[in-house]
Structures are given as structure tokens and as C-alpha cells.
């Protein structure tokens, strides 16, 4: 299970809409508990460095990756994965996604349909290098009632 906290989620979704019709991409930082449940507290938006058609591919530049590892180390967070968008396509990883995927990382995919956010799903490689879906928990919004 992966929970993306509200502020991080809003930033990620805004990036996906703003980048449309291109794919967006960025890093996910947070903590993992002893049962493997992940909480994303921070995201970092990065440039889609793909040369050519960014509407169907994304690439993160190596120096952006190095900086993401440095950020995680300095902030005491864990680099838990990557998000990207699928413009006008479902939030299901492609074979290209799978071949390039790393172990351990969560791959969050945001489907964007004509500038509107669609399903958000997350995937992780299993030991056979195949994607398995992990459930995405929706953050509970505060009603303010506890302060009343």
C-alpha cells in the first residue's frame, strides 16, 4: 500500500495536467514501515529529458537522479519511487515501463484524459521482474471538526 499525502499528491497531479499532452515525471520521497507500507510526504518535479516525442515517453536525466539521492540523504527521507503520466492512456505500465523499471521503486502512473486527471495507480516489480499493482490509499481530508 502506498499513501501519497495531500500536498504531494496535489503537486503531482498539477504537474501531470500542466505537462499534458506530454508525459511528466518526478521523484517520490517518504518512509516505509516494517510491513512495507509506504507514505509519500514529498515529491520532486523534474524535467522530462526525453529527446523527441515526450507525449509517449519520459526520461529523467542522470544528474537529476543524483540530486534526488542527495536530497533524500540530506532530508532523512527514502527515495521510494518515481511518478509519471500517461496522457490519454490508462495508468497501466507498458512493456517499455517494465524493461526500464528498477527493483524496490514504486512506479506511480497518473492517467490524464484531455487535461483531466484520471485514475492514479502504482506498480512495483516482483522478484520475477514483473509489475504487481500496489494499492494507492487516498489521504483522509481533515474536516476541522477536531478543532471545533
Amino acid at each position: 500500500m502506498i499513501l501519497i499525502q495531500s500536498t504531494a499528491r496535489e503537486l503531482m497531479l498539477a504537474d501531470a495536467v500542466q505537462a499534458f499532452p506530454d508525459e511528466c515525471c518526478g521523484f517520490l520521497f517518504g518512509q516505509e514501515d516494517g510491513e512495507g507500507h509506504r507514505t509519500i510526504t514529498t515529491i520532486r518535479v523534474v524535467n522530462n529529458a526525453k529527446e523527441g516525442d515526450k507525449r509517449r515517453r519520459f526520461v529523467i536525466a542522470p544528474l537529476d537522479y543524483i540530486q534526488a539521492e542527495q536530497f533524500a540523504e540530506e532530508s532523512g527521507l527514502t527515495l521510494l519511487g518515481v511518478y509519471h503520466s500517461h496522457p490519454n492512456h490508462p495508468a497501466i505500465p507498458s512493456e517499455h515501463d517494465r524493461i526500464a523499471a528498477q527493483p524496490f521503486f514504486s512506479y506511480v502512473i497518473v492517467s490524464v484524459l484531455e487535461r483531466k486527471v484520471g485514475p492514479v495507480r502504482s506498480w512495483r516489480l516482483n522478484d520475477e521482474a514483473q509489475f504487481e499493482e500496489e494499492s494507492v490509499a487516498v489521504p483522509v481530508l481533515s474536516t476541522g471538526a477536531e478543532n471545533a
Binding site: 539521492e69 500517461h86 517499455h96 515501463d97 523499471a101
Partner: peptide, 12 residues
């Protein structure tokens, strides 16, 4: 020395 995995993908 940094080992940097290539991070890439896309729907097609």
C-alpha cells in the same frame, strides 16, 4: 562514484 540507474518509461 555514483551508480545511476536509468529512469525512463512511457505508455508506448
Amino acid at each position: 562514484i555514483s551508480i545511476v540507474p536509468a529512469i525512463a518509461g512511457g505508455f508506448a
